[in-house]
Design a protein around this nucleic acid. Structure first.
Length: 568
RNA sequence: GCGCCCGUAGCUCAGGCGGAUAGAGCAACAGAUUUCUAAUCUGUGGGUCAGAGGUUCGAGUCCUCUCGGGCGCGCCA
């Protein structure tokens, strides 16, 4: 990460005084919570024990050795902290000119240069519509992919479509029993047609459990390469992908690979043989399992009584295949937290097989979207479809436009961008491990800390820049020394740090907070100061400030996969 | 029964590698638009950080237990 010069001076100062390397000092530098406390702080508590003096005394003795520099004006001792105050003009100039210079690349880094990360995300099951539940893996996975790309990682994004397994057998049985290929082809919405069949299957199966056996048998046929079953699978995959792609397009989701589980079909047996060689696979109640007692886990099931494979077998197969193909440094599974046990079992099994690269694999769990009083269940048919949500979002955004800016061109396009922006941001802005209670008004809120707030801020800035019509030539940085401009610059300073932390913690919400902080600082500035004015020196400097804000917001929104319309 | 996750303002959440007076948004109330987009801004009220112990100079943050909610625990994925 490129630190700005003020921060570098702080680190250099502490490092020299305490005779500790700069790399060791850097992580201890904090950003004080209050404006009055300066811009950087060094907490001396950690040293108190080692030096056998009070933190206060340590801070005082450090302060004694301080002399003002180009970027640091003064230090103050507050409690056990040594607080640094920057030389405002140089600080502003340093940060803003580097943001403007980097432009569209502001916030990017080369931390991950030469490294490869594979991200498995979205991964819906075929023949079922996208429910709101699928939103999270899709949105979070794409944001992580973008974050890693912005840090110069090579990213492979795989959509691991669920087109294999018993659940898939159920769909074929349902189609054959309660519907027909003919009806499917003529259906207005093939996915809804298939979904209804799927719900019916589970209703019928409650009365008649033998249906489940039929589904298993159907899957067994598929796994043996049965022609009819395979053709039906391909047909269902085809219809499903068409529907999925429509939604992906709306959300701006792009995978580098779309590979169903069926992609690994002919690799499963070789992988299974390999597993048997690496560790003990034993029979248990007719099934084949790997014992994981030593890891405190229940056994991992690899094959069912009838010899067909399970989720875990196919996941292991895919994992071996991916490592061979991509030789990844990290493999991320963006999958709901309800599957934590599965991944613990999977990774423990790999450890038992003495596979070294298991520590490169991570499950990135997230909470589920559910109703207040009950679980969403595709089987029972009580779900909210993602398309429904996006349509409603667009409708509400359009209403807002009609009210606020009826002259706007491209209303539909903007409404789509704002609607989906609200949905995406709402999902990404809280820590992903938390469950989300589905609520229309909260999810589609356009005011306050929301996606549309960021978009609105961008549009507002774009409008001012356009109206000013003036080009920035020489910038006299001394013209933007006011508190509000200064606070914007402080917020901008946090953006690259937030991007880096969000990437390391696999947590897009960190970036969301930093962007809101910038936008809020700008809007405060906006209400207090005019940009376009007589004094062209001030105008130029302020325009430069606005451009920097716009770059940071646009780049951030791009990472989150949210569009920033010029007008709204 | 066992395991994992969560519990912070009326609501939704930041603060989760211990550190300064626990912060935002929504809702409520009071204000701001002859001026660059009011999807905005300014202000007010609102908290035993679920509870009890413990570790520490210092705990919302770490440990233990209790309570509440969610999820998972063999032939689904």
């Amino acid at each position: 990460m490129n630190q700005n010069q003020s921060l570098q001076e702080v680190i250099r100062f502490i490092s020299a005084k305490l005779n500790i390397s700069e790399v060791e000092v850097a992580p201890f530098i904090e950003f004080p919570p209050e404006k009055s406390m300066g811009e950087y702080a060094f907490p001396c508590f950690i040293l108190a024990k080692k030096l056998k003096t009070s933190p206060q005394k340590i801070a005082e003795s450090l302060a004694e050795g301080f002399f003002p520099t180009e970027f640091l004006k003064e230090v103050k001792v507050v409690g056990g902290y040594l607080n640094f105050f920057v030389q405002r003009e140089n600080y502003i100039k340093d940060i803003l000119s580097s943001v403007l210079k980097e432009g569209g690349a502001f916030g990017k880094s080369d931390e991950g240069k030469g490294k490869m990360v594979v991200i498995d995300y979205s991964s819906p099951n075929i023949a079922k519509p996208f429910s709101i539940g699928h939103l999270r893996s899709t949105i979070i996975g794409q944001a992580l992919a973008n974050l890693f790309r912005s840090a110069s990682y090579k990213v492979v994004g795989i959509n691991h479509i669920g087109d294999w397994g018993t659940q898939f057998g159920k769909q074929i049985v349902a189609l054959k029993k309660f519907g027909s290929v003919e009806d499917l082809k003529n259906a207005k919405d093939p996915i809804v047609y298939l979904f209804d069949l799927y719900v019916k299957f589970h209703k019928e199966a409650e009365k008649n459990p033998s249906l489940e056996d039929e589904a298993r048998e159907m899957f067994a046929k598929t796994e043996r390469g049965d022609k009819e079953a395979t053709e039906l699978r391909d047909l269902l995959v085809d219809y499903s992908l068409k529907a999925f792609n429509k939604t992906y397009k709306r959300l701006g989701i792009e995978f580098t690979h779309t590979r169903g589980e069926s992609y690994y079909a002919d690799k499963v047996e070789p992988a299974f043989k390999k597993i048997e060689k690496l560790t003990e696979v034993r029979e248990s109640e007719g099934a084949l399992v790997i014992d994981l007692d030593s890891y405190g886990l229940t056994p991992l099931l690899l094959k069912k009584r009838d010899g067909t494979t399970l989720y875990a077998t196919r996941d292991l197969t895919a994992l071996f295949d991916r490592f061979e193909e991509f030789n990844f440094n990290q493999m991320l599974y963006v999958v709901g937290q309800e599957q934590t046990l599965h991944f613990n079992q999977l990774f423990s099994a790999l450890e038992k097989m003495k596979i070294q690269w298991v520590n490169r694999c991570h499950h990135i769990p997230f909470g589920m979207i559910r109703f207040k009083d009950k679980k969403m269940s595709t089987r029972e048919g009580n779900v909210i479809f993602l398309e429904q949500v996006l349509d409603e979002a667009k409708k509400r955004a359009k209403d807002a436009i009609e009210k606020k800016n009826p002259e706007l061109k491209d209303k539909d396009e903007v409404a789509e961008a704002v609607g989906t922006g609200a949905v995406i941001f709402n999902d990404l802005s809280q820590r992903m491990i938390k469950d989300v209670i589905f609520d229309w008004d909260q999810m589609l809120n356009f005011e306050g800390d929301t996606g549309p707030y960021l978009q609105y801020t961008c549009a507002r800035i774009s409008s001012i820049i356009k109206k000013s019509g003036s080009n920035i030539k020489e910038i006299d940085w001394s013209r933007i020394q006011d508190d509000e401009s200064f606070q914007i610059v402080r917020a901008l300073e946090q953006i690259p740090i937030a991007i880096s932390n969000a990437t390391k913690a696999y947590e897009p919400s960190i970036l969301c907070s930093a962007l809101l902080f910038v936008a809020s600082a700008f809007n405060t500035f906006y209400h207090k100061h005019r940009v376009i004015q007589e004094d062209k020196n001030v105008e130029s400097a302020r325009l430069a400030l606005l451009k920097a804000v716009l770059y940071s917001l646009k780049n951030g929104l791009q990472i989150l996969n949210i569009k920033a319309p010029e007008e709204m």
